[in-house]
């Protein structure tokens, strides 16, 4: 069995709204092994995005333990959390979230710049990644000059910039038509085949069907985990 990349123990995320406590996450227990492809599903408001934000260190749990690659990241200070985010995690958002004034290569470079990679190396790696995502003809283009699918490819290239432990995606195909969505999912499959650990939040059973496991959320808890395939196995 592969080593766990993510371990969540009794994880809570509680919002206080007008004196009321809302538990977006209420004691989540979850282990994700290296190389796994995990889909997170569940009804709206069940805490999927909150879970992904906590996994991505964008949000902090109110309580509980989060081990990322064996390191307890629950109590790191902001600088260290930022560094972990940039170096060990990669994000793909539903709305791409590219920086409009930067071109394709520059967008892909951003995580490397913050990780202290030298100018020259960053440029080379960014170019190679963008080309691998099929953007070889668009390297100098701004996000507004790209289709949604192309933008999401840039976002994936950017998420891979620092070769993260885990790639996190929240509805990565939510804004795309079916065909383009299939292309993006194909890219994710390919990454998975190369051993990348993926966590994808989705409403789409077709998307979830590509994952090894489906984590079903309800009311801030993991309700059930469906196993499509043994972890690490490729189809």
């Amino acid at each position: 069995m592969a080593a766990p990349v993510v371990e969540l123990r009794d994880l809570w995320r509680t919002y206080v709204l007008g004196g009321h406590e809302v538990h977006a996450l209420a004691g989540v227990e979850l282990t994700i092994e290296e190389g796994a492809y995990v889909a997170i599903m569940g009804p709206s408001g069940s805490g999927k995005s909150t879970l992904l934000n906590v996994l991505g260190l964008l949000d902090r749990p109110t309580r509980g333990t989060y081990l990322l690659g064996g390191r307890d990241v629950s109590a790191l200070d902001d600088d260290d959390v930022s560094a972990e985010r940039g170096r060990r995690l990669g994000f793909v958002f539903q709305n791409y979230n590219l920086i409009p004034q930067l071109d394709v290569v520059e967008n892909v470079e951003v995580p490397m710049v913050y990780a202290g990679v030298g100018d020259h190396e960053a440029r080379e790696r960014a170019t190679a990644l963008a080309e691998r995502m099929g953007l070889g003809a668009r390297l100098g283009h701004r996000p507004t000059e790209l289709s949604g699918g192309q933008q999401q490819r840039v976002a994936i290239a950017r998420a891979l910039a620092n070769d993260p432990l885990v790639l996190l995606a929240d509805e990565p195909t939510g804004n795309l038509d079916t065909r383009t969505g299939q292309e993006i999912l194909g890219l994710l499959d390919e990454l998975h085949a190369h051993g990348k650990t993926l966590v994808v939040v989705t409403h789409d059973p077709g998307v979830a069907a590509r994952a090894d496991r489906i984590v079903r959320m309800r009311d801030g808890r993991v309700e059930r985990i469906d196993v499509n395939r043994p972890a690490g196995a490729t189809s």
Binding site: G56, L58, D78, D79, S82, A83, R85, G86, R87, F91, N97, L98, I99, P100, V110, P111, Y114, A115, R158, N162
Partner: peptide
């Protein structure tokens, strides 16, 4: 604001 959020998600510290 969103650009700031993106940069933070990509590893920017407050200082950056």
């Amino acid at each position: 604001t969103r650009e700031i959020g993106i940069r933070r998600a990509l590893g920017a510290r407050r200082r950056d």
